[in-house]
Each structure stands twice: as structure tokens, then as C-alpha cells.
């Protein structure tokens, strides 16, 4: 298993053999020659993100920090396949996600990525259970009994009360717990959290941070989180700081790369 049990330490172990990874399994995440440009309303272009090389090992917990507008969201959108780069490649294991068509990216995202948002984004009219099961309805018509059981287990593990309660009636902390359970339903190897504690009070934020980090570690899932919350970022294996679209401390980046990664394309 590439995931490591040791907390709070840059930990990626060298992968066993080539960095393979199916859509479903843990895999190396690589960004190569990435450039993303934003266009404002007038059509003027500005740099959104520029990453020459970045490798995230399977099971690694990475925090992205930086002022707002520095490219954190763009980074997460890129890695989750919501956005395609203007140049460069995003690879998940052997899969070049940035080259996928839209339908393929959606399917890949459904199976690979678990999303936790700053504002939870639950469907307030649905119950806790139905919110957690919602991504299941994107592909299949019926929810298998096993998945339903798993959802109930995740809800219990997230410390939530009655799964039949309407999500809109929950406290903010409870809503984020539901969102975490929703992100974990498909057992994704890549968890992406965008400011997961920013709209919570410190105590609740810490509890959510525990929940997310524990869930990622227990599954050996790679965790990427954009956050300003020092309590959260301090617990990551690695902190990447973005400023004006660039990674500030390439040394940090390269240290992990040097430790962990075969040359891109070496497996081919």
C-alpha cells in the first residue's frame, strides 16, 4: 500500500513498481507544464495558474495556501477535471485526465474524486441519507442495498444523528459532516476539499478537519485541500503555497518529487 500511516510528516513511500493507477485505485497525481489563463469580461487574459512540474504521491495529504485569487480554486478545478488547462497535462496514474472528453471526465470524477466544498452545498430539501446517496443517482437508477448500508455507516461514522433528517435543518458543522460522508460514498482515491473549515467556528472546524484527515488516511486516499486554516494546513503532509498563479517554494515541490517519482513516461 502506498499510503502511509505516519501522520504529520511528508511521507510518500516509493511506489511499488511503476506508478500505475486505475481510475478507481490510488495513483500518482502529476501536473506537467500547466498553464491556465483567465479571461475577464473585456476579453483580457491573465495568468490563472502556472505549474511546471508537480507530483503528489498516493495517500499524500497536501494543503494549498495563498491569498485569494492566487490560483487555489483553479488548481482544484484542474485536478478534479472540472477545467482543462490551456497548456500542459494532468495525469492520474497513467490516465491523462486533461485529455479526456467531457463525458469521460465526468465518469472519472464520479469514480475518483470526492468533493468537499466550503459551503457544503447539500440539497436542503433532501434527507441526510438522500444527500449522501445523491451522486449514486447520477449513473444508476436503483441504489444497491449494499451502497445504502455503506451510506448509513458513513453517516454514523461522521457522528450524525438520524439519517432521515432534512439536510436543510442541520447546523453548519453537521452539514459539513454530511458533505464529507457524501464525498466518501464512492470510496474515491482522491479527496478534494475547498476551504472545508472556512465557514465553521474553530472547534467545529477542527472536528471536521479530524474527520477529513482520518477518512483520507484510513482509505489511503490522496487529499488535496485549499485552506487558510493553519490548524488544518499544519496537519497536511505538505504545504504548497500559491501566489499569483505560481508555486512559491519550488524546493518543497521538488523534494517530494525527487523522493517519490520515476521520470514521467518512464513506465511507458
Amino acid at each position: 500500500m502506498p499510503a502511509t500511516g505516519a501522520p504529520d510528516r511528508p511521507s510518500p513511500a516509493p511506489p511499488p513498481g511503476p506508478a500505475t493507477g486505475s481510475a478507481m485505485g490510488p495513483a500518482f497525481l502529476r501536473l506537467e507544464g500547466i498553464r491556465v489563463e483567465h479571461r475577464d469580461a473585456g476579453g483580457a487574459r491573465s495568468l490563472g495558474l502556472a505549474v511546471d512540474r508537480l507530483v503528489v504521491a498516493p495517500g499524500e495529504a497536501v494543503a494549498l495556501t495563498g491569498p485569494s485569487g492566487a490560483g487555489k480554486s483553479t488548481f482544484l478545478e484542474l485536478v478534479s477535471g472540472l477545467r482543462r488547462p490551456d497548456a500542459g497535462r494532468v495525469l492520474w496514474g497513467e490516465s491523462e485526465v486533461s485529455a479526456f472528453g467531457e463525458a469521460a471526465r465526468e465518469a472519472w470524477r464520479r469514480l475518483t474524486v470526492g468533493f468537499v466544498f466550503q459551503d457544503f452545498h447539500l440539497v436542503g430539501e433532501l434527507s441526510i441519507l438522500d444527500n449522501v446517496l445523491l451522486p449514486q443517482s447520477f449513473a444508476g437508477f436503483r441504489v444497491p442495498a449494499a451502497v445504502r448500508c455503506r451510506a448509513a455507516d458513513l453517516i454514523a461514522a461522521a457522528g450524525l444523528p438520524d439519517p432521515r433528517r432534512r439536510a436543510g435543518l442541520l447546523s453548519r458543522g453537521e452539514q459539513q459532516r454530511v458533505a464529507v460522508a457524501r464525498a466518501l460514498l464512492a470510496d474515491p482515491p482522491l479527496l478534494i476539499a475547498d476551504e472545508p473549515t472556512a465557514s465553521l467556528d474553530p472547534a467545529t472546524g477542527a472536528a471536521i478537519a479530524d474527520l477529513i484527515l482520518a477518512a483520507a488516511r484510513a482509505r489511503g486516499a490522496t487529499l488535496l485541500m485549499a485552506s487558510h486554516d493553519p490548524l488544518l494546513t499544519a496537519r497536511a503532509d505538505r504545504i504548497l503555497r500559491l501566489e499569483a498563479g505560481h508555486l512559491v517554494d519550488p524546493a518543497v515541490v521538488n523534494r517530494a518529487e525527487a523522493a517519490a517519482v520515476p521520470a514521467p513516461g518512464a513506465a511507458a
Binding site: L111, H121, F138, R182
Partner: peptide, 16 residues
């Protein structure tokens, strides 16, 4: 549109 964008982010297709 945010509600639907979240669905898309969670893996729902346009058709959904």
C-alpha cells in the same frame, strides 16, 4: 446554477 454546478462537480453529466 450553483446547485446544478455542484451536481456536475460531484460527477453528474449534462444529461442528468
Amino acid at each position: 446554477r450553483r446547485r446544478y454546478a455542484v451536481l456536475r462537480a460531484l460527477g453528474a453529466g449534462r444529461v442528468y
